[in-house]
Structure formats: structure tokens, C-alpha cells
């Protein structure tokens, strides 16, 4: 998919673990894993808002677009 999830890098930069983030934003570890691995078909604004708030970042830091080959 041309939309890339950059969550792993942001988590590493902030020194936050996946399970800590999942707990903080109120989603399951399984759902966070779906998001991190790029299997998600859609992201709710409420989830994006919670992630940005928890990691003090912008949506553009988490998601970016790469054109198809």
C-alpha cells in the first residue's frame, strides 16, 4: 500500500513501547500491531488524535505517502 505507517520510528524516538502506547490511547495491542504492520484498512480520527497527543507529534509524522512503482 502506498501509505506507509511510521509508528515504529516515532515510538523509538520517544522511547515508548508498543504496549505502553496501546494502554495510553485505549486500543488493544492486537489493533496497534495491525496499524504498525500496515494491515489496517482505515484509521479513525479519534485514534490518530490519541496517538498524536500521546506521542506529541503530527499525523504527518506517523503517515506518509509513497507513489506506486
Amino acid at each position: 500500500m502506498p501509505i506507509i505507517i511510521n509508528l515504529d520510528k516515532i515510538l523509538e524516538d520517544r522511547g515508548v513501547k508498543s504496549n505502553q502506547l496501546a494502554e495510553k490511547i485505549g486500543i488493544t495491542k492486537a489493533n496497534l500491531s495491525i496499524l504498525k504492520t500496515g494491515k489496517a484498512k482505515a484509521v479513525r480520527f479519534s485514534t490518530l488524535e490519541a496517538i498524536c497527543e500521546a506521542l506529541n507529534c503530527q499525523p504527518g509524522d506517523i503517515l506518509y505517502y509513497t507513489p506506486k512503482d
Binding site: N31, L32, R44
Partner: peptide, 8 residues
């Protein structure tokens, strides 16, 4: 259903 399940 799959789309709904894969919406985070």
C-alpha cells in the same frame, strides 16, 4: 466486515 475489523 473485514474493513470494519481492520479499522483501528
Amino acid at each position: 466486515k473485514e474493513e470494519n475489523e481492520l479499522t483501528v
